[in-house]
Write a protein that binds this DNA or RNA. Structure first.
Length: 491
DNA sequence: ATGTGC
């Protein structure tokens, strides 16, 4: 990799910077950023990775990095890369690295008809949540599933979870893709199955969390009202994904695809498909090839497991809220978004219709209110875009366009974005001090290890408010309301 | 992100 992209960098002055196509790039790259933001994030590897993705076969439009971009596996986190599914004989590329290891990592956002004053005892509530929400690397505490149950979940996602007794009928329309992506065979490896049988309803570790929050500042009153949100209201975010099952699906397909590439003077080449990639971690298959279809089918099954996982976590949260708040504890799902996914969608590229495989890796869909996939309750506002920040600072809910799409294939940022690597954060930040500071501010924190607190400390992340401002400036989504943390359960 | 390595 090289840093020559700096010679091709242009500030567009609209909250984005462009890297003009050079070398093997087929399209320009575009970062949601400005010079100040770029300077504060000295790691060149993210833009380098974005440049690499711009040479993927079939790529259309521009290779995008959302405002929370940072270094990832092959593709940067925050990457939005679309390929034409009708290019050539077998279609454009689909790449497991463009989705990431935590397939359908995402956020469920719930709202209560209550305020902080309705909580009899926050400390007790937080303690009970910590007791009921299995978190951390151990993977203990998941629902014991039969092989048959797991298969239903892989095929049916949140709707299958509902059939097993997790969730409410009224949840389903509020989930991206109604909580179910199409899979023919749910053909995931035996190893992936074994990892799925015990992990349903567990949070995981790293940046995954469950957070009880209050609505702080409402900046778009009309939209907030349409969504039933108001200042001081209690809300909750559940951030989790497909756990070990999705990780295994990604590992299986990354390994088998990477093994079809050999090193050449230009990079990494697959002779059968005539693909040459700058980085082996971009390993990709044509979308209509056997390998491409096998990946997409397994990826969708893993995505369904993630939708089901968030449904079970929501059920566990609801149980605690009912116990602690009584009738005030009813929580409705406002929305549930996927952060790590590849989807076949219709978009306009250079004024022409194009059916694309849109990779969103650490990026959220942000469709307009008139899109047929968006529930009719959002027709006058655009879809909710849930953007968790970090545990000390706060989180946002944004909205997609009222009508139509945006210039990044209907996408927006997914969080604050790391500013420090986990290793740097562990070295520089002290978890115990952080916990004390947060609790002095009235925020209850339960974490499975002190390390996770330093790795996930506010200072390890970019400023979420800056990320939201850039996203708005780039015209990708508009801020609706900012949430303040109240109780945090971390893996 | 991850039964934190192949």
């Amino acid at each position: 990799m090289d840093a020559s992209w700096r010679d091709h960098l242009v500030d567009e002055g609209d909250g984005t910077m462009r890297i003009k196509a050079h070398g093997a790039m087929r399209v320009d790259a575009r970062l949601v950023t400005d010079m100040g933001h770029m300077m504060r994030h000295g790691d060149d590897r993210g833009p380098e990775q974005l440049v690499n993705t711009a040479s993927l076969p079939g790529i259309v439009g521009e290779a995008w990095a959302m405002a929370d971009w940072h270094y990832g596996y092959g593709f940067p986190i925050g990457g939005v890369v679309a390929t034409d599914v009708n290019e050539g004989e077998l279609g454009g590329a689909v790449s497991p690295g463009g989705v990431g290891f935590d397939i359908n990592c995402g956020v469920r956002f719930l709202a209560l008809d209550a305020t902080k004053d309705d909580i009899p005892n926050l400390k007790k509530l937080a303690g009970r949540l910590a007791g009921r929400i299995p978190a951390g690397g151990s993977g203990k505490g998941g629902v014991d599933l039969s092989r048959q149950d797991l298969n239903e979940l892989l095929m049916g996602g949140a709707s299958a979870a509902l059939d097993l007794g997790f969730g409410l009928d009224s949840d389903l329309p509020m989930l991206e893709s109604k909580g179910c992506l199409p899979t023919q065979e749910a053909n995931v490896s035996q190893r992936a199955v074994e990892r799925g049988l015990k992990s349903l309803g567990t949070l995981g570790s790293g940046n995954h969390f469950l957070e009880l929050q209050t609505v702080g500042q409402v900046v778009d009153e009309r939209t907030a009202t349409a969504w039933g949100l108001h200042e001081h209201q209690l809300v909750a975010m559940i951030h989790s994904g497909s756990r070990g099952l999705g990780h295994q699906v990604c590992t299986d397909h990354v390994r088998s695809l990477e093994s079809t590439y050999r090193q050449t003077d230009q990079g990494w080449t697959n002779d059968a498909w005539g693909y040459t990639l700058a980085d082996r971690q971009l390993a990709a298959a044509p979308i209509h090839s056997r390998e491409g279809q096998a990946y997409l089918d397994a990826m969708n099954a893993a995505a369904n497991f993630a939708f089901a996982n968030r449904a079970v976590l929501a059920e566990r949260l609801r149980t605690v809220l009912r116990l602690e708040l009584g009738v005030d504890g009813e929580a409705r799902t406002l929305y549930d978004v996927a952060h790590n996914i590849a989807k076949v969608e219709d978009h306009h590229v250079n004024g022409k219709g194009c059916t694309c495989c849109v990779h969103r890796k650490g990026a959220t869909r942000a469709f307009g209110g008139d899109h047929p996939e968006v529930a009719s309750v959002f027709s006058t506002t655009g879809q909710p875009v849930v953007v968790p920040g970090d545990m000390g600072t706060g989180s946002w809910v944004m909205a997609g366009p009222i009508n139509g799409s945006n210039q990044a294939f209907g996408s927006s940022c997914h969080g604050a974005g790391r500013a420090l690597s986990r290793a740097q954060a562990k070295k520089l930040l002290d978890g115990k001090t952080l916990k004390r500071d947060l609790e002095n501010r009235g925020i209850r924190v339960h974490a499975s290890t002190p390390n996770v607190l330093s790795e996930e400390a506010p200072d390890a992340y970019k400023n979420v408010d800056d990320v939201i401002k850039l996203t708005q400036r780039a015209g990708l989504a508009r801020p609706v309301a900012r949430m303040n943390p109240l109780a945090v359960i971390k893996g």
